[in-house]
Structures are given as C-alpha cells and as structure tokens.
Simulated scan of single mutants.
Amino acid sequence: MGRTGTAGPTSRDQRPWLTGVPAAELAATTFPKLVVTGGGTPGFEDVADALAEQLSAKRVLFDGSPQRYSASGSRSTLNSWLT
C-alpha cells in the first residue's frame, strides 16, 4: 500500500534515478547540493527527500509555499547555505 493508504506505489517508493534526474552523476560531483520545495505536493516532497538522500544534499522545505517562496524566511536560509 502507498503511504496515503491507497493501493500502489508512492513516489517515495520510486528511486531518484527513475525521475529523470541524473542522480548518480550529480552525487559523484564535489559541489554542494540543495533540494528545495514548498510543501504543496506530497509526491514532490517524497521525490525531493529521496534526491536529497541520494545526493547527500541539504534539504530545505519552505512550508506553505508550493508556488512561491516567502522572501523573509527563505532569503536568510538560502544566503546561509551559499556562504
């Protein structure tokens, strides 16, 4: 059963390399990775979680902002990651 109680796999059951993202190639690079989502779509959150794990990436969730991010909180988060 999927995570939502329905039959069938959820996106968490899928591996990142099945999403079309070259996860193995990205994981082999030495630059830092950041996976950011807005919390609006559970399937995207599951894929982002799996990608962050596969890539050893920092995972950031700007909760409540599925299409836009709040400049106040996200700017400081992103700036701290970049420096």
Score class of each variant (00 low, 15 high):
F62C: 10
S72Q: 09
K58G: 06
E25G: 03
P22G: 08
P9D: 12
G20S: 08
G8Y: 07
A52G: 15
R15H: 12
A71G: 10
A23K: 10
A50R: 05
M1W: 08
T83S: 09
Y69G: 13
L26Y: 03
V36R: 00
P32S: 00
P32L: 01
G64D: 03
E25Q: 11
T83E: 09
G43A: 14
A52Y: 01
R59G: 08
V47W: 01
L34T: 10
A23Y: 01
S65W: 10
S11P: 09
A71K: 00
L34C: 06
S11I: 03
L82A: 14
G39D: 10
M1I: 11
G2A: 15
S11T: 11
L18G: 06
K33G: 00
T30D: 15
L61S: 12
D49P: 01
S11Y: 13
K33H: 14
F62G: 13
D63P: 00
S76W: 04
A71W: 08
A71V: 14
R3P: 01
T6F: 08
S56F: 03
S56Y: 02
E25V: 06
D49S: 10
R15Q: 14
Y69P: 02
P66T: 06
G64R: 11
L82C: 08
Q54E: 15
A28P: 01
Q54K: 15
R12T: 01
T6Q: 10
D13I: 03
A71C: 05
E25S: 07
P32H: 04
F62Y: 06
T10W: 11
G20H: 08
A57N: 09
T37K: 00
G8W: 07
T6Y: 05
T77M: 01
S11G: 00
S56A: 15
